[in-house]
Computed example of a mutant assay.
Amino acid sequence: MEATEAVEPAQNTPAPVPDPGPEPPARPAPRRRRIARTVGLIAIAAVIGLVGGTAVGYGIQADREPTPLPPLNQPGLAYPKPLPKGQKQKRLPAAEDRQAKAQGDLRKLLLPKPAGAKEDEYAEDVDGWMTVDTFAAMFKNPGEALEDQLDLEIRRVAATSWITGEHKRTHIRLIQYRSSAVLGAQEFTEGQHAYLPDEDWADEDGTPIKGSTDGRSYVFPVDRKPGYLDLYEARAVFHRGDIAVEIFVTDTKKISGKEIRSLAERQLGRL
Results as ranks from 00 to 15, higher is better:
248 F>S: 07
30 P>G: 07
233 E>G: 09
166 E>S: 07
74 Q>A: 08
204 E>I: 10
62 A>D: 14
42 I>T: 15
137 A>S: 15
61 Q>T: 15
213 T>I: 14
141 N>A: 10
100 A>C: 04
11 Q>N: 13
240 R>F: 10
119 E>I: 10
173 R>I: 03
43 A>D: 06
53 G>S: 14
258 K>W: 03
209 I>G: 02
99 Q>A: 12
36 A>L: 08
46 A>Y: 02
195 Y>H: 07
179 S>K: 05
99 Q>Y: 05
233 E>S: 11
212 S>F: 01
143 G>K: 11
260 I>Q: 02
158 A>D: 01
42 I>E: 11
202 A>E: 04
182 V>K: 14
174 L>G: 00
222 V>I: 13
143 G>Y: 04
23 E>W: 10
99 Q>V: 14
163 I>M: 09
1 M>S: 08
143 G>P: 01
96 E>Q: 15
3 A>Y: 06
217 S>A: 14
268 L>P: 03
129 W>M: 12
226 P>Y: 05
163 I>F: 02
268 L>G: 04
271 L>I: 13
236 A>S: 12
211 G>A: 13
88 K>T: 13
98 R>V: 08
203 D>E: 09
249 V>T: 07
18 P>T: 09
205 D>E: 15
219 V>K: 04
94 A>G: 07
62 A>C: 08
191 G>Q: 04
101 K>Y: 03
3 A>I: 14
88 K>P: 00
195 Y>K: 09
156 R>M: 09
182 V>I: 06
238 F>K: 06
189 T>Y: 00
162 W>E: 02
11 Q>L: 15
114 P>E: 06
179 S>F: 03
188 F>A: 12
3 A>S: 07
176 Q>M: 01
147 E>I: 15
